[in-house]
């Protein structure tokens, strides 16, 4: 069923005005496993995700999906991104979900939006103005909205960076749930604990360069690159 993946990045670089923000990235995201892009703040994680989503274009190199994307304007896209800061419209939570489903016929959009609220267990927020919710609640609305569009691939950019522990736990549960449901997850984080809890594979990014990409268990046992080793040891994760 999964036909979009793997996603291959071949020699991808991105620069703004001579500043190389991402350099010669050669990685591949396979179907099935949950990928985590790990790195310190400013390592280029957000840029890498935006690049994968097509929000920005590489300065050089190519980005290749297994299947050519041919989404017409107005169609539901095959992948989506949940931002670090949730971007919600000034209207009810339900209306926010429906906004993402505009390409569906009305009689399909509404049930699907309601199902998404149920899935995230936020039916009680349905008629609240989304922008007046707490950040944690907003982020859960954002992931419910992403779920509603039934993407094949879901990107998440530091989805729990601004959240309290409760909301973080709920988000992680929802992410894991999505993964189990067959959605390919590619998320970034600087939180090692979270990476350890969720990741199947780790891509370690430092100063715009990929230092290593390997399975999570291997990464936490024996990180190959010196930067990754230091990153782990500073935070007390070195065995």
């Amino acid at each position: 069923m999964t036909t979009l993946l793997p996603l291959n990045l071949n020699d991808v670089s991105y620069q703004i005005a001579q500043r190389k923000l991402l350099r010669q990235i050669n990685i591949s995201f396979e179907a099935k496993n949950l990928s985590v892009i790990l790195g310190a703040n400013g390592a280029g994680k957000t840029l890498l995700l935006k690049l994968c989503c097509g929000l920005i274009q590489p300065s050089s190199g190519q980005l290749q999906w297994a299947k050519t994307l041919s989404t017409k304007r107005g169609d539901l896209p095959p992948y989506t991104l949940v931002f670090q800061k949730p971007v919600l419209l000034q209207r009810s939570v339900l209306a926010n979900l429906c906004f993402a489903l505009q390409s569906l016929p009305k009689d399909q959009a509404l049930p699907r939006a309601r199902a998404a609220l149920k899935w995230a267990d936020i039916e009680h927020l349905s008629s609240r103005n989304a922008t007046t919710l707490s950040t944690g609640q907003q982020q859960i609305v954002a992931i419910a909205r992403a779920w509603a569009t039934a993407p094949e691939v879901l990107f998440l950019d530091e989805p729990t960076a601004n959240l309290d522990p409760d909301a973080t736990e709920r988000m992680e549960t929802l992410i894991a749930n999505l993964h189990l449901g067959g959605t390919k997850i590619i998320m970034s984080t600087h939180n090692l604990g979270q990476a350890q809890r969720l990741a199947d594979t780790i891509t370690f990014l430092d100063h715009g360069q990929v230092c290593e990409q390997q399975s999570a268990s291997a990464f936490f046992a024996t990180p190959k690159s010196p930067v990754a080793q230091r990153f782990l040891s500073v935070q007390g994760f070195m065995p």
Binding site: C53, L55, G74, D75, L81, F83, V87, F99, Q102
Partner: peptide, 12 residues
């Protein structure tokens, strides 16, 4: 604020 989000939703 919304530009990227709209592009992701692929809205017209």
């Amino acid at each position: 604020k919304f530009g990227d989000q709209f592009r992701l939703f692929n809205t017209t």
